[in-house]
Amino acid sequence: MLEIKNLHVKLEDEDKQILKGVDLSLEAGKVHAIMGPNGSGKSTLSYVLSGKDGYEVTEGSAHLQGEDVLDMEPEERAAAGLFLAFQYPVEIPGVGNMTFLRTAVNAQRKARGEEELSAGDFLKVVREKAKTLKIDAEMLKRPVNVGFSGGEKKRNEILQMAMLEPKMCILDETDSGLDVDAMKLVSEGVNALRDAGRTFLVITHYQRLLDHIKPDVVHIMANGRIVKTGGPELALEVEQNGYADILAEEVA
């Protein structure tokens, strides 16, 4: 699904290298998790893949189903099936959540040469998906993320994901700012989307999210590189011993 090879990224405005040769191969239908200490480059990876300004790729590549994503505009990446659930979803006053969702869904459909959803059809689908995420009509009407609690914002991200049905979903610290109940709700939303044709990259600091969203593969990222890859047991090891052992191993 997503092939990342030897990806090197620096900040555009500073001479600061953040990613120093990331290699990742994410197969269709799998859930990969990336864990790692603060500043290891996890969020940068998610931003670079989704096309945020401010980063410069100095080496390496990323291909989504064979297409070079690094060459695309952010909206083209979205239409190609890439989705980033933001760590900090942005508030947009004055734009209704519903309007936003419909604009996004139809923009992607249009970009893919599909017919736009009618207002009625859209409403039906959005109501059904919102219900499973416990998002009520009031929240759909409110301006995008304005006045939403941390949990509501993250649920709203998952609703967008459910509506857009991307192939490659990147979740950037979706568990941050969530209480136990909200984490459960969000995880259920994600699990409902697990599918043979869909891949997840779950970025997190903590094992607890991975109790709910069970990964197939766990990667440890440190200092701009993937330093260790293993099964779900790797996440447990981190939870018990911290990163120190793994990082020490790497240096040795």
């Binding site: 505009e73 979205a78 979803p89 004055g94 734009v95 869904v105 923009a107 992607q108």
Partner: peptide
């Protein structure tokens, strides 16, 4: 906000218009 909208597939011009209305 512009990046957020574009990352959802909203074309740049439309995203700017939405932010103008916002």
């Amino acid at each position: 906000a512009l990046f957020y909208l574009r990352s959802r597939g909203v074309e740049k011009g439309t995203a700017e218009d939405l932010l103008v209305l916002s």
